[in-house]
Computed example of a mutant assay.
Amino acid sequence: MGWGRFALRRLAGTAVVVLLLSAGVFGLLYLAPGSVQQTLLGTRPATAETIAAIQARYHLGDPVTVQYLRWFGDVLRGDLGTSIRTGAPVSGMLADRVPLTLALTAYGTLLAALAGIPLGVLGALRRGRAADRLVVTAGVAGLSAPPFAVGLLLLVVFAGWLGWFPGYGTGEGLADQLWHLTLPAAALAVGAVGMLLRFSRAALVRELDQDYVVFARARGLAAPVVLGYALRNSLVPMLTAAGLVVTGMLAGTVLVEVVFALPGLGSLLVDSVTFKDVPVVQALALLLTLLIAAVNLLVDIGYALADPRVRLGGGAS
């Protein structure tokens, strides 16, 4: 499949997913307890005229399908709407918070890759030995640990008891920001390490059992050279794991940002759902869907670059 057809196919699939997801989120928010007028009025008394004005301002009297189609039409024109809770443009709110969430996701992915892939390689090379059993146990423990629970533990130990890292905030300047994001990124990375470890170990074990590895060893090729061939042929499963890790971290930032009081997309989502700020929640769902679709697209392209036998959007040719 050519690059043009592949891109069009992926764009069409992403559009369908965005449409279905946005409609589902809109419907769930419509059915959730509470209302926009309650959010705006709070505990203040309201007259019938005030409620009618709010309903007219936000078209709350229209059927839910009409409200959704109006929102979707505005999105297609580049208008994400205005926050019900703050009155600020939604696009500006997202632009202020996206860099932090992306930086936290990238930092967590880097930490996970630096730990998970070498441990997986170690387990594969020491298959059946004590080191391998230890690596497998560490992978299971990492996969079983929720990021928010790990974050609380890291916060208590390294920020509270030891005082090695700051407990909240984003810092100022690149070095200080990285220092502030280390504990949140580590909380996200723990589970990701387990996934990368298991995928990389399983992929490398399978490759080391292949005939070409046995033949290369029989010819007397150096062990690092043979390992390099096996690692290259293990890249596709590792890329799959990396894609799962990044998408999982984008979802995991929701609670981790709340634990560490970080002003990213996750904390914005929690606040917006709590106050039933429909435009912001819809925009966040749309943005996260597009980010996940972009990650999957990059993984598919990585397949084709890592292994020429893999066709774009298909299996091995």
Results as ranks from 00 to 15, higher is better:
Glu257Trp: 00
Val258Asn: 15
Val258Glu: 15
Val258Ala: 14
Val259Ala: 10
Val259Gly: 08
Phe260Cys: 07
Phe260Glu: 09
Ala261Trp: 04
Ala261Ile: 11
Ala261Thr: 13
Ala261Val: 14
Leu262Val: 02
Leu262Cys: 02
Pro263Cys: 08
Pro263Phe: 08
Gly264Lys: 03
Gly264Leu: 09
Gly264Met: 10
Gly264Trp: 03
Leu265Glu: 07
Leu265Arg: 01
Gly266Cys: 07
Leu268Glu: 06
Leu268Asn: 03
Leu269Thr: 06
Val270Phe: 12
Asp271Lys: 10
Asp271Val: 07
Asp271Leu: 12
Val273Lys: 00
Phe275Lys: 06
Phe275Asp: 03
Lys276His: 12
Lys276Tyr: 08
Lys276Trp: 03
Lys276Met: 14
Asp277Tyr: 02
Val278Cys: 04
Val278Phe: 00
Pro279Asn: 10
Pro279Tyr: 04
Pro279Cys: 10
Pro279Ser: 12
Val280Ala: 00
Leu284Ile: 14
Leu284Lys: 00
Leu286Ala: 13
Leu287Gln: 04
Leu287Met: 13
Leu287Thr: 12
Leu288Phe: 12
Leu288Asn: 07
Leu291Phe: 12
Ile292Pro: 01
Ala293Gly: 08
Ala293Val: 11
Ala293Met: 11
Ala293His: 05
Ala294Arg: 02
Ala294Gly: 11
Val295Lys: 01
Asn296Ala: 15
Leu297Phe: 15
Leu297Trp: 11
Leu298Asp: 06
Leu298Cys: 13
Asp300Ala: 11
